[in-house]
């Protein structure tokens, strides 16, 4: 991937956390906030600028679920699989999304539009089952609603 101001971007982040012990996770959070994921080029740049071995960076990146190593789709479809959502039918919603988009968990559609993510509890169990598409929350979703939710977003392209 080509990112224009990669060096400067990374420098801002690294400088911000300079001198703080144990800052690696926070640096990676800042990078992901900026790009939506942690590109390999950025990880290399962090390594170069901070002197931290690349292996140390990937050791952390691969341990935590929150960090993404691949570019996410234009829309992130997150299905909650917390206990309340599970009981109220989230597995059927996941199935439906798979059928419609032809992707598995953690994959992005070929056109790069939708990324299917399964999350453990969004912390709004009163609304179960819940799907979010980026920042938009859909509550008490039924299997028959899924097509409409996806369509709502494909239409905006």
């Amino acid at each position: 991937m080509v990112v224009e101001n990669l060096q400067d971007d990374v420098k801002t982040v690294v400088d911000r956390w300079k001198g703080k012990e144990g800052n690696l996770i926070m640096v990676l959070h800042d990078i992901q906030d900026r790009y939506g994921y942690v590109p390999r080029a950025a990880a290399l740049e962090v390594s170069r600028q901070s002197g931290m071995p690349l292996a140390r960076i990937y050791e952390v990146l691969t341990f935590y679920n929150y960090f993404k190593l691949k570019a996410p789709g234009k829309f992130n479809v997150a299905v909650c699989l917390g206990t309340a959502c599970y009981l109220k039918g989230a597995p059927a919603l996941i199935e439906e999304i798979r059928d419609i988009l032809h992707v598995n968990e953690g994959e992005t559609t070929k056109d790069g539009l939708f990324h299917l993510q399964i999350v453990r509890c969004l912390g709004c169990c009163g609304l179960a089952p819940v799907i979010t598409v980026d920042q938009k929350v859909y509550s008490a979703v039924k299997k028959s609603d899924v097509m409409g939710i996806i369509a709502e977003h494909s239409k905006t392209i």
């Binding site: 012990e21 144990g22 952390v60 935590y64 960090f67 453990r120």
Partner: peptide
């Protein structure tokens, strides 16, 4: 960063230290 085990005290400390 999305690791349930980090609710455990010693794992949480490792995470604050920037480790797995």
């Amino acid at each position: 960063a999305g690791a349930f085990v980090c609710g455990e005290e010693t794992a949480l400390i490792a995470s604050v230290e920037g480790l797995r």
